[in-house]
């Protein structure tokens, strides 16, 4: 317990430090002291405008989206019993992004509140589709079949999203950074309406963590010790849709956070989801914030966080697939 608490504390400190680093990094020179002053005692100056309109939204977006994706990945791994499950690989993020772009472009929806529900709808539909595709036919849904179905759905929906954006240059201008998983140009006004949904989903994930541990033992064991697996799988799916939908609304389809973070936590601390979930939330926030900040601060390249995460996540995925024998599936 003390080790878990120490890890949690370390992650919180890391998030705070990287947040400060991020706030002090950017094209316009702003010292850490200036950034801190503008944050704590907002005024009307140039530093305040940069901080509140450009840099803070980015930090908030990274923290919230990362936290939500970390939790979503942990829940999906528990429920599917699949070490490779996460909202990016299983097409949930792509589904959310596709429906949001569709709503923006074809139906001209622009209200943030409506777009969030589009993200939820897209995430939910993609999850159901992937699960149905993987479970159809003989043998049911093995880990690798689930991932294959997810990748197919993600690729297909990604292509459709790109096609819409190629035809509709106006929408493309509006969502270009967003679809690439870049946090650049995010506004607090876009993020704030999503926060209640993200907070609610995160709270539900934490409250039900013990149920997810039981689910992770498999449907038979869960039933034999008195859980109703169908009910709790459905509740878990709602949590995942809420989490991934919120994350995509804020930050676009960021992959690999939900894969890398829960595994790092499991390898470091092990244990049930009562431990894995809170730390995945903190770890997801820290990793996404770092992925957004480090290239900008160290290389002066404003690389989309989604790309940085893929550079970290892809080798991790390969290692994980090999070490778990998931390929033999």
């Amino acid at each position: 317990m003390t080790r878990t608490a120490a890890c949690a504390l370390g992650l919180v400190l890391l998030i705070l430090l990287v947040a400060l680093w991020s706030l002090a990094t950017g094209a316009a020179g702003l010292s850490v002291a200036e950034a801190a002053r503008a944050l704590l005692a907002p005024g009307e100056g140039r530093a305040d405008a940069i901080l509140w309109q450009v840099r803070l939204p980015r930090v908030v977006a990274a923290i919230v989206a990362g936290a939500a994706l970390g939790a979503a990945g942990a829940i999906m791994q528990a429920v599917t019993g699949n070490p490779l499950a996460e909202p990016g690989l299983l097409g949930v993020n792509a589904g959310a992004a596709f429906v949001v772009v569709l709503a923006l472009s074809v139906f001209g929806v622009t209200a943030s509140a409506a777009l969030i529900w589009c993200a939820f709808g897209g995430a939910g539909s993609a999850a159901v589709l992937v699960y149905a595709m993987a479970s159809a036919g003989r043998g049911g849904g093995t880990p690798i079949r689930l991932v294959l179905a997810g990748v197919i759905v993600a690729t297909f929906l990604g292509a459709l999203t790109t096609a819409i954006l190629l035809i509709d240059s106006q929408t493309l201008d509006a969502v270009r950074f967003w679809t690439a998983g870049s946090l650049k140009g995010r506004q607090l006004a876009q993020i704030l309406p999503v926060l209640p949904y993200a907070a609610l989903s995160l709270a539900a994930a934490l409250v039900f963590a013990r149920q997810f541990t039981t689910l992770s033992l498999g449907g038979d064991v869960a039933r034999s010790i008195g859980q109703n697996p169908a009910l709790w799988r459905a509740i878990a799916a709602c949590c995942v849709v809420g989490l991934a939908g919120s994350a995509v609304s804020i930050a676009g389809p960021l992959g690999f956070v939900g894969l890398v973070v829960p595994h790092m936590v499991r390898l470091t601390l092990g244990g049930g989801y009562g431990r894995i979930l809170p730390l995945s939330i903190l770890g997801g926030a820290a990793l996404t914030l770092l992925a957004d900040t480090a290239p900008r601060a160290l290389l002066s390249v404003d690389m989309p966080a989604g790309i940085t995460l893929a550079l970290i996540g892809a080798p991790f995925f390969i290692w994980l697939a090999r070490s778990h024998g998931a390929v033999r599936g």
């Binding site: 019993g81 039981t214 010790i225």
Partner: peptide
């Protein structure tokens, strides 16, 4: 049974208290 990955013996046994 599942591998109960990452769980300690005591955590697994505690699952028996579910009902």
């Amino acid at each position: 049974a599942s591998p109960a990955e990452g769980m300690t013996v005591e955590e697994l046994v505690a699952q028996g208290r579910y009902p």
